[in-house]
C-alpha cells in the first residue's frame, strides 16, 4: 500500500487506497510526457515518491527524470525534471 501523502484530505480520511487522484494527475502526466517527448526522451512509467504527492518517471534512454507534483508549494512548479526541459543526449 502506498504511504498516504501528508496533508491530503483523501489520506486524512482514510480513503487513499484505490488510487484516488488518478484522474487528477493524468492531465499533468500527459503534459510532462508531451514536454519530454519534444526533447526526444522516452519516459517509463510514473511511480509515486513514497509519502509525497509526487510521481516521477525516468527516460529509458538517458535516465533523466520528469516529475509531477499535485500540491506544489507556492512558487514551485507542478511539472519539473531535466527530462521535461532538456534534449535527450541519447536520442
Amino acid at each position: 500500500m502506498m504511504r498516504r501523502c501528508k496533508d491530503c484530505v483523501v489520506g486524512l480520511f482514510g480513503a487513499c487506497r484505490p488510487d484516488y487522484c488518478y484522474a487528477e494527475r493524468q492531465g499533468l502526466i500527459e503534459e510532462a510526457e508531451y514536454l519530454a517527448t519534444r526533447g526526444g526522451h522516452v519516459l517509463g512509467p510514473f511511480d509515486k515518491v513514497e509519502g509525497h504527492p509526487i510521481w516521477r518517471a525516468y527516460c529509458t534512454h538517458c535516465s533523466q527524470s520528469a516529475a509531477i507534483a499535485l500540491d506544489p508549494a507556492p512558487g514551485e512548479p507542478q511539472i519539473y525534471g531535466d527530462a521535461t526541459a532538456t534534449v535527450c543526449p541519447r536520442a
Binding site: 491530503c8 486524512l12 482514510g14 487506497r17 487522484c21 484522474a23 504527492p53
Partner: peptide, 17 residues
C-alpha cells in the same frame, strides 16, 4: 489539508479496513 476532486468513477471492492 489539500483538497482533491471527488472521484467520478466507482471503484467497487470490499472495503473492510
Amino acid at each position: 489539508p489539500h483538497y482533491r476532486v471527488t472521484r467520478k468513477q466507482h471503484i467497487h471492492q470490499v472495503y473492510w479496513r
